[in-house]
Design a binder for these strands. Structure first.
Length: 422
RNA sequence: GGAGAGAUGCCAGAGUGGUUGAAUGGGACGGUCUCGAAAACCGUUGUGGGGAUUUUUCCUCACCGUGAGUUCGAAUCUCACUCUCUCCGCCA
């Protein structure tokens, strides 16, 4: 949620930000009009209330019954007028909220303006791409060959885009989760185990609703929504709280499965485990004071890169342009690892600074010193990393001519093997 | 799932339908006293919206779990919901 004051005082700035995001600007006019009407109603109804409050106080002290009755009758009418105004206010508030909630965050000045993902900027390539003296196979061939990925049975259980991991395949994923969490703990992140189902309000606060309703799974009988990312519960962990300055920055990491109803084009990304309705992810999350968030973003990107480096994967860092950053983000780095079998770069992490956008929705504040006015914190999130794509990169980069897969050194003690072979 | 109890400020805990934003106690902060500290005493101690003034303040409205209702007036009365606790049942 943007500061309504920004829309009020600098609507042009907001409009330009929406244009840069390739989004419709009509919402700005709607918010402006509703905001003006809201304040009109407020002024009127508050005047009436003040009048009623003082009259009621006097009525309480009146002794003369007849005069008292006259006064009460007069106030009855004032009460009716208030009721009418309140009813309209409720409507206006509702609409204003809905409109204001649908405005995405203002991009940071450093986020390049661009009309599509083609205008994202590749900042760096890190690590050397592994050269093979044979043609590397894609993971959707290696997995079934080694018996560690079973696509058929996944489909049997749950339909297309589901799979089963077997034996060392399942173990490799578990090893990655454990290793990543340990790594992040060493980087100063506090590990949390979170609910995988949350209530609707929690999704609004994180910026997933109302815009991405179509991409979420939820129970129709109860107010339970499956988390699309650990970012959602992590954003709300301190919702409604006022934190002490010396508690900041807060660094969290968490492993959760993620559930996404993806409206995918038939035929796109269908092969393998790159994109599914359910996947695992280790997430990093930070809450900090506004002046800290630029620096925290860089260190979080660094922490995500450390995962790729630890696994010995070649990767590149992208700075997303205005049209490609997420709804809640003001600036985002993507980290992509090279997958020689699929022959493409895979996005394994997205590291974003959301500024006070989520904090405003979730009402997360802090006090610089006891007694000081509460201010909104800044929030940041980043994957560290998405599991299936990391699995793909490991399988395809560490494959050998005979179809076996070497286990990256850091994972060996978790997997309990140096190599996965048939 | 069944039965009961409860939800008030940072915490504990009062609150006859009418100056109750809310007694009292504790904590925290400031001050007096002291060489210093403790004790004692005095004072301060919420959030959000709107308006005026503009960098200092003032006025006003809302908020006592949430949402409706009754009333001239609700922390206080009515209803629904949520959550917490205790007991019973069930369960990994």
């Amino acid at each position: 949620m943007l500061d309504i004051n920004l829309v009020r005082t600098q609507p042009e700035l907001v409009r330009q930000a929406l244009i840069n995001r390739s989004a419709d600007t009509a919402v700005v006019d709607a918010v402006q009009a509703l905001d003006i009407r809201r304040r009109e109603i407020l002024t009127q109804s508050e005047q009436l209330r003040a009048q009623r409050n003082s009259a009621s106080r006097e009525i309480g002290k009146m002794k003369d019954a007849a005069a008292r009755e006259t006064r009460i009758a007069g106030m009855r009418e004032v009460g009716d007028r208030i009721a009418v105004l309140e009813a309209e206010l409720k409507q206006v508030d509702l609409q204003l909220d809905e409109q204001a909630m649908s405005i995405p965050n203002m991009p940071d000045a450093r986020t390049p303006v661009g009309l599509s993902e083609d205008e994202n900027v590749i900042l760096r390539n890190e690590g050397s791409v592994h050269r093979f003296d044979f043609i590397p196979k894609p993971h959707w061939e290696l997995g079934p060959y080694l018996g560690i990925i079973d696509f058929e049975r996944g489909v049997k259980l749950s339909g297309t885009r589901f799979y089963v991991l077997n034996g060392l395949g399942a173990r490799l994923q578990r090893a990655l989760i454990a290793w990543m969490l340990d790594l992040h703990a060493g980087q100063g992140y506090h590990e949390a185990y979170l609910p995988f189902m949350v209530k609707q309000q929690t999704l609004y606060a994180a910026g997933q609703l109302p815009k991405f309703k179509d991409n979420l799974y939820h129970d129709v009988e109860e107010d339970f929504w499956m988390v699309p990312t650990a970012e959602v519960p992590l954003t709300n962990l301190h919702g409604g709280e006022i934190l002490a300055m010396n508690a900041l920055p807060l660094h969290y990491c968490a492993y959760t499965p993620c559930f996404r109803r993806e409206k995918m084009k038939a035929g796109s990304d269908v092969r393998g485990i790159k994109r599914g309705h359910q996947f695992d992810k280790v997430e990093m999350y930070k809450l900090c004071a506004p002046e800290q968030s630029d620096e925290e973003l860089e260190s979080m990107r660094e922490d995500a890169e450390a995962v790729c480096r630890g696994l010995g994967l070649a990767y590149r860092v992208k700075l997303l342009c205005t049209s490609d950053i997420g709804f809640s983000a003001r600036m985002t780095y993507d980290i992509e690892v090279w997958a020689p079998g699929c022959d493409e770069w895979l996005e394994v992490s997205s590291v974003s600074n959301c500024g006070d956008f989520q904090a405003r929705r979730a009402n997360i504040r802090f006090r610089r010193e006891p007694g000081a006015k509460p201010e909104f914190v800044h929030t940041l999130n980043g994957s560290g990393l998405a599991l299936p794509r990391t699995m793909i990169a490991i399988m395809e980069n560490y494959q050998q001519a005979d179809g076996s897969i070497m286990v990256p050194e850091v994972l060996q003690r978790f997997v309990g093997a140096n190599v996965i072979r048939k």
